[in-house]
């Protein structure tokens, strides 16, 4: 087991390293560089200006040299400097990363809170009207274009019924007396984007819970437990759900990997100060350092959570061999 984990860990690190070069290379393949963008915004830039700036930014060096410079900076803990905002990458990404995680985890939590009980319920009522209604609710969420849902929610609950703000992350320019008022203020802005993201992912969790539960309830020990005369609640939650839980946890672990990049479009619609929007902008504006750090975080999170899921899965199901 340890052997397997170590081997996979090494593989993962190698893949991350290779992908980082691949991404870097991709970025250089893209037409244009920061200087080109400056030329566009200022017609009077001369060819001397262009040569001077390219040299200053190190853009006149070959890709591998630039990659090496970048990588050695990273290894020394220097994340670089954002060309768009002209401040260090860590300064701009730090708070946005936190915002994105807050949004993603809030919506994940909301989705799970709704999906798991409903999933169990519809599994127990499989084939009935309840099951159909819940199933429809799940499918409609999965099938909804997220930006469309976002727009509709804004129109409904920010313009027609002004319950929530149309966009933003927090009320600007207000002195919060206590941490509690900060939390409530942030929560107020989180409601609509969280609902949007959660509704879209409920379906997946719900259907998964339902089939895991169906599977679990079909097992012999459930019949035994029932035959023993245990109460329904005990049978369902202690025997049935506990068995479904293992695969559910794997599923949730896997979905952590999307936490970083899953909210880009929702963040854009709600002008939410998250990292998804930043990633998109940094690529559009050729902000190399920001884009590369985002790539790295995104890629690493996916690979690492995949690894964790694999390991957990093997623990959960000893029949799967780890060779």
């Amino acid at each position: 087991m340890t052997n397997f984990i170590i081997r996979r860990l090494i593989q993962t690190v190698i893949v991350i390293a290779l992908l980082s070069y691949f991404c870097f290379y991709l970025m250089t393949l893209m037409p244009g560089d920061p200087v080109d963008l400056m030329i566009q915004s200022n017609p009077r830039i001369t060819s001397e200006d262009v040569a001077r700036l390219r040299n200053l930014y190190g853009l006149d060096q070959p890709t591998y040299v630039r990659y090496w410079n970048w990588m050695s900076g990273i290894l020394q803990g220097d994340l670089g400097y954002s060309r768009t905002y002209r401040i260090p990458v860590s300064d701009i990404m730090g708070p946005k990363l936190v915002n994105t995680f807050v949004l993603s985890f809030a919506s994940l939590a909301l989705a799970l809170i709704i999906a798991i009980p409903l999933g169990v319920w519809s599994a127990l009522r499989a084939g009935t009207k309840t099951d159909y209604v819940i199933g429809f609710f799940a499918f409609s969420g999965v099938s909804m274009p997220s930006f469309w849902l976002g727009l509709i929610l804004i129109i409904a609950f920010a313009v027609w019924i002004p319950w929530f703000p149309a966009g933003g992350t927090e009320t600007i320019g207000v002195d919060h007396g206590s941490w509690w008022s900060i939390v409530t203020d942030r929560a107020y802005y989180l409601v609509l984007p969280t609902v949007t993201l959660a509704y879209i992912s409920i379906g997946r969790f719900l259907r998964f819970t339902r089939s895991a539960m169906l599977e679990a309830m079909r097992n012999d020990y459930i019949r035994t437990a029932r035959a023993k005369g245990l109460s329904r609640v005990v049978v369902i939650w202690q025997h049935g759900f506990r068995n479904a839980l293992l695969s559910l946890i794997t599923m949730v672990t896997l979905s952590f990997s999307g936490v970083f990049s899953g909210a880009t479009i929702t963040e854009t619609v709600f002008a939410y100060q998250g990292v998804g929007k930043l990633v998109y902008d940094s690529i559009i504006a050729n902000d190399f350092n920001v884009a590369m750090i985002s790539f790295m975080i995104s890629v690493s999170m996916v690979l690492i959570f995949n690894l964790i899921a694999d390991i957990m899965y093997s623990f959960a199901d000893p029949r799967i061999s780890l060779s």
Partner: peptide, 22 residues
């Protein structure tokens, strides 16, 4: 499978912008 994993882990949007330029 590692190639598959790698592709799966790539953030889609950025790469799409690149491809749209090709």
């Amino acid at each position: 499978m590692r190639v598959t994993d790698a592709l799966l882990s790539l953030p889609t949007l950025p790469v799409l912008i690149v491809v749209s330029a090709v």
